[in-house]
Design a protein around this nucleic acid. Structure first.
Lengths: 348, 348
DNA sequence: GCCGCGCACTAATGCGCTTGAGTTCGATCA
DNA sequence: TGATCGAACTCAAGCGCATTAGTGCGCGGC
């Protein structure tokens, strides 16, 4: 009766051993499902453990070489850019779902840039904090795969193209090239000949891939007034670029935005300039979300199951942690959902 | 020359001790800034440690009673609800900033509901994973404070009202009541007498607080046609409720939405019904974001510095971890930013 | 000149768990 | 019947760090 309730004490394997009348090692064997104990003892130990509410201390586990039961996830984007974007929360949501099943923790960090991100990986590795990491926003010239190699840290690259130079890394990606080709197909069929692609961050692997594909598709059809402009993904730049390209002498008749946020901002900017969507200019958003159905006109968008994307990535990472081989897995190509923002090109 | 580069090995204190020609204990003393070594030895040890790129193993630290150098953050909302909401990423961004300075990790998890969230806390505690947690979305009848008490886990409640029954918890909150009063003031001054508050999740502490305040303010002015409707924060419900209340015999002339997403969806829904904003109905969004400036008309919104909110919460938690006392700290009241969506009530 | 004291440092222990090396004992086989 | 083996356990060491109890030594005080 101290008056103050003492904070509960964590039960340890020693407690279980005592209660079950066996040695600590037997408890360890029993609970980890390895041979060396009879089934009846195993059951007894399991029951006692459950009754005591025992959970292995990750600290102790990690210390005795079992890994930290944690994976890391770093987001390296300017703080103001990650405001409205729904992509990451969805992705993380899917990742979580898979990790939680296996009782793996997710260590999350926001960094300012790639260099900081690398420093975070180094620190996590040195501090014994994570068993593997999920890498997003791969770049065309990316230092992270090399670093992970050097540290021997298992990693899954999300959204990158397959990279033969890093056989240790698993890559999970969608074929952006195919999606871009489909978009161009659709717009071309609608009569659009002048298209501007308002892209995301220059240097990101998927940005560059989309840009290359767009150019290839344009060349294939002999279109000369097709181009890409890179941005920082923000609504502000999306709007600014939209105003700029629409103010030219021969404005495009179709705009393809690399995310939903810029598309929405772009539509508003276009409206401000007197362009109506889709009568004067068609708009496609690369990334579907509630946002696309919250504005009028509803935005045609490239849709994919981002949560499932996250699940896939997490599953691959757990496979890697289990000692499986690195792989390259492709998730379904985003599908173009035609809504109200795309229509026939206006005849000149 | 094995041909295969061996993954780098983590340097330990033993390595430092050897290189510096002292015992491990001396190294420990030196690096943790406690007495027992001379300044010159301390410097030498520090240099060697730096040179070797040594970082303390959190596993070992945690095991020897120093805590896990990690804080936990659980988000318990339905997966589809957390899509567009910018609040959390902003909040986490601020939290991160402070934690990173102290090299504290952030363990992040998404749960389905409060019960699951509690289970996560229990597991984290039993597994020795976190030193403290950040609790969001406090409810009117919330099991979490009791649980944290029981586990002796330091916690900071974000967004709750001060709670005298849990002296161990720090609370960081904004005075929603004051903000709501300001909103009503403003709308009243503009001539609005029929106001509907499209609130968030019923049961959340701040939802209830806003509802109570709205009622009190209405009573004070003798307004009878003022009410709140709770939702799940989604754009879908926001739109649905908007349509319902605007379809009634005497539709409200002002709508106050508990987040930006619903407000945007609501404006679109109102437009669909032939109501123009702000001519027919004024709209205020509780929570400002890029979203509010991405749609026309620009939304008047209650704005606050969410990133700073996160920073404050994290600072309080670190203070708690340092053994400081639990406190109740109030962050600035959200300010109403008048934009285009609020105007004089239409005379009947 | 000896005692005691403080300083700089070492030795040893423990945190909770895993694991390889024993130990015991009953069943099996030549 | 004694050697052999395997199943079921126990022992003890070790992971990397913090921490408590020493240990050796120079120095001031009497």
């Amino acid at each position: 009766m101290t008056g103050k309730r003492s904070p509960a004490r964590r039960p340890t394997m020693k407690d279980i051993a005592r209660r079950a009348g066996v040695s600590e090692s037997a408890v360890s064997f029993a609970l980890n499902g390895r041979p060396g104990v009879s089934e009846v003892t195993r059951d007894r130990v399991r029951r006692v453990a459950e009754q005591l509410g025992w959970r292995p201390s990750t600290a102790a586990r990690a210390l005795s070489g079992e890994g930290a039961a944690t994976v890391g996830f770093v987001l390296a984007r300017p703080a103001d850019t990650l405001g409205v974007d729904s992509f990451f929360l969805q992705l993380v949501s899917g990742i979580q779902e898979v990790l939680a099943e296996r009782h793996l923790g997710l260590l999350f960090q926001i960094a300012q840039n790639i260099a900081d991100e690398c420093a975070v990986y180094r620190r996590w590795w040195a501090e014994h904090r994570v068993d593997g990491v999920l890498v997003v926003d791969p770049r065309t010239d990316d230092p992270r795969p090399d670093l992970l190699d050097e540290l021997g840290l298992p990693g899954v690259v999300i959204g990158g193209a397959p990279d033969a130079r890093h056989p240790g890394l698993t890559t999970v990606w969608a074929d952006d090239a195919g999606a871009m080709a489909a978009v161009v197909d659709e717009l071309y069929a609608l009569g659009h000949r002048r298209i501007v692609h308002i892209a995301g961050l220059a240097g990101l692997a998927h940005t560059e891939r989309r840009i290359r594909t767009l150019r290839a598709e344009a060349d294939r059809r002999g279109l000369t007034e097709v181009r890409s402009v890179t941005t920082d993904y923000s609504d502000a730049e999306g709007a600014a670029v939209t105003r700029r390209v629409l103010s030219g002498p021969t404005p495009p008749t179709a705009l393809v935005y690399d995310n939903d946020v810029m598309a929405v901002a772009g539509v508003a900017a276009a409206a401000g300039l007197g362009f109506s969507v889709p009568a004067d200019v068609s708009v496609v958003a690369w990334e579907d979300s509630a946002l696309c159905r919250m504005v009028k006109p509803w935005l045609s968008a490239l849709s994919r199951d981002t949560v499932e994307f996250g699940r896939t990535a997490a599953r691959e990472l757990t496979a890697l942690l289990d000692g499986g081989p690195a792989r390259t897995v492709q998730v379904p190509v985003p599908q173009l959902i035609g809504r109200e923002s795309t229509g026939p090109a206006r005849g000149d």
